[in-house]
Amino acid sequence: MSGEAGAPADGSGEIREISYFQAIFEAHQEEMARDERVVLIGEDISLYTRAGLLDGSLEGRVFSAPIAENGFSGMGVGAALTGLRPVVDLTIASFIYLAMDAIVNQAAKIRYMTGGQASVPIVFRASMWHEGSNAAHHSDRPYPMLMNAPGLKIAVPATPADVKGILKAAIRDDDPVVVFEDNSLWFKSGPVPAGDHLTPFGVAEVRRKGSDVTLVAIGGTQGVALEAAEQLAGQGVSLEVIDPRTLVPLDHETILASVARTGRLVIVDPANRTNGAAAEIAAIAAEYAFDQLRWPIVRVTTPDVPIPFSPAMEQPLYPSVADIVEAVRKLQ
């Protein structure tokens, strides 16, 4: 088990620089080759094998579906109940609302409602296409809604190594997992171990060690978080940057241990502010680390507005380096 980006999991894996996008397909390819029960279901995915993203021999397990998100997501749930391990590609995260019954009422609850008679080993992939002038129907970051649905596991991988490791671990998990990719990361590269690299769930990664402020950054905000940490280091402020990697389960220990040392907590979350992942992490810190906190918790989030089309309006909404620097300065 290795969560370390760049650390070979099986001791023999060479480390390559590959993109987040390539890492996604390596995970699919390897898991489909390893386990014949793994099938892919989604829109426009027949091109996966035709474009060589997946081996042509896997074609019979790639179901390029009509545009029927609830139907094919529920079909995936039924397939998971009866012996397959489906990966349902919902394409863009905003489309998840069309499949809410399949995901929230069925996938999340079936193990529970049947008293443990059944399990639902299914993975839903949803890519968050914000920051691209796609307007409000294609730009949501809806993971907080699903964090409120017990029975689901929620992952927000931020590096090529983690997206590969999380997808592979999710496919092997016996519970439903929703993996929220950040589309802006798709073509960014990073070190990824070859071979069987698995990222454990509920284990945060400390992306940068520090002693003055704990900065929990969700998903694709790692970039701005690390840049802000670098800037502030030049001003003598040491930030510890933590990437939770999975939001359900959430690694309370790593976050609370860091807060115990720093006494200051800033959370950066690309989701909307109200009831976001940042709100949950803030609540956990307030409940369990109140005595260690020396300053009020600060959230840096996207405000509660639908995403507008024009870049002039859209870009300033998301957490930026300047927003984080300003938030940290408030704590001085």
Binding site: R37, G60, N70, G71, G74, L81, L84, P86
Partner: peptide, 13 residues
């Protein structure tokens, strides 16, 4: 849709 998925399993398996 769940029944449809059981059909998918039967076909693949």
């Amino acid at each position: 849709p769940l029944a449809t998925g059981a059909g998918l399993s039967a076909r693949v398996l």
